[in-house]
């Protein structure tokens, strides 16, 4: 990281430098306070959830409640099942995207074949198209063919989230890979497929890992697809968390916070492991760092 380098003309510990640090501090208080608050709230007992702010006796009970039948009885949200559904459908969606996307990204990164740009931009446009444009007809179709509220239906529609990401990120990695390496493998006597598996694939493995994890994060975080295309059995975690506040009856803020924390944690952990590749991923390969 270049963070330790001083900018030309910059000196440490001038009033300006201290001021800059103060400004940063203001942002990070704003940025991190809600997260801190979420943790605090998730550790409160039901008795203290609305009566105290910062001074309370912490407990981990909320997490076990949320993940058990007890939480389902209290809030009518089956959180554990949503968690499982999210893991399976998001994992499945990423897997499908990788299997389909890696060859396509390789083709688009290596050859300018007729229509390749059109295909790539059509795929990218899925990222920017309003989701409902697809969801409304799918809602009708799913109801007709029985894909409504199924994991398969979810895996299918999540391709809109995961596939553009996987293909665009990986294409930028394949483009950066010198062609000579695969050509050398061809002349060593390997077929194109073996050259790809032996040479190209191992070299873009970091890119594949980054793309897969980022796609998983976005699939995990998606809300509008499962909100409309799932019902009670295969709803995902975002839908479940939102439902804690949705229905009438008694509000369990502490349980809501615990659920939200559980739902937020996997993306946070994954994101920190791929921080180095994040910029390139978030910009679909447009900005390389």
């Amino acid at each position: 990281m270049a963070a330790a380098e001083l900018m030309p003309g910059q000196r440490r510990f001038t009033p300006a430098a201290v001021g800059a640090d103060l400004l940063l501090l203001v942002w990070f208080v704003f940025s991190l306070f809600p997260l801190l608050w979420l943790v605090l709230l998730s550790l409160k007992t039901s008795a203290e959830q609305t009566s105290t702010y910062f001074a309370f006796s912490p407990t981990l009970e909320n997490f076990s409640t949320v993940l058990s039948d007890q939480g389902t009885r209290l809030t009518s949200v089956n959180f554990l099942s949503a968690l499982v559904s999210s893991v399976l459908s998001c994992g499945g969606a990423v897997l499908v995207s990788l299997v389909i996307g890696i060859p396509a990204a390789y083709a688009a990164g290596r050859w300018r074949f007729r229509g390749s740009d059109d295909l790539m931009f059509t795929i990218l446009s899925f990222r920017f198209a309003p989701e409902l444009m697809v969801i409304v007809p799918l809602f009708v179709i799913y109801n007709q063919i029985g894909l409504f509220d199924t994991k398969l239906g979810l895996v299918w529609v999540l391709q809109l989230v995961t596939m553009p990401l996987v293909i665009w990120i990986l294409r930028s990695y394949f483009e950066d890979l010198p062609e000579d390496l695969e050509q050398a493998a061809l002349l060593d006597g390997y077929t194109r497929r073996r050259a790809f598996v032996m040479v190209a694939l191992p070299l873009v493995r970091p890119g594949i890992a980054a793309a897969a994890l980022l796609a998983f994060i976005f699939a995990w975080n998606s809300y509008i697809f499962p909100l409309i295309l799932t019902g009670g059995t295969n709803g995902t975690i975002t839908v479940a968390v939102a439902r804690y506040l949705g229905g009438g009856g008694q509000a369990y803020y502490n349980l809501t916070a615990a659920a939200a924390l559980i739902g937020a944690l996997p993306p946070l952990v994954l994101a920190l492991t791929i921080q180095r590749y994040l910029v390139r991923g978030l910009s679909f390969g447009a900005v390389k760092s």
Partner: peptide
């Protein structure tokens, strides 16, 4: 005829050694 059938060997300017 595909490169892998041509029985020719090539040394690339970039060396093209497999880095892994």
């Amino acid at each position: 005829v595909q490169p892998y059938h041509r029985r020719v060997a090539m040394a690339f300017e970039s060396y093209a050694l497999y880095p892994q």
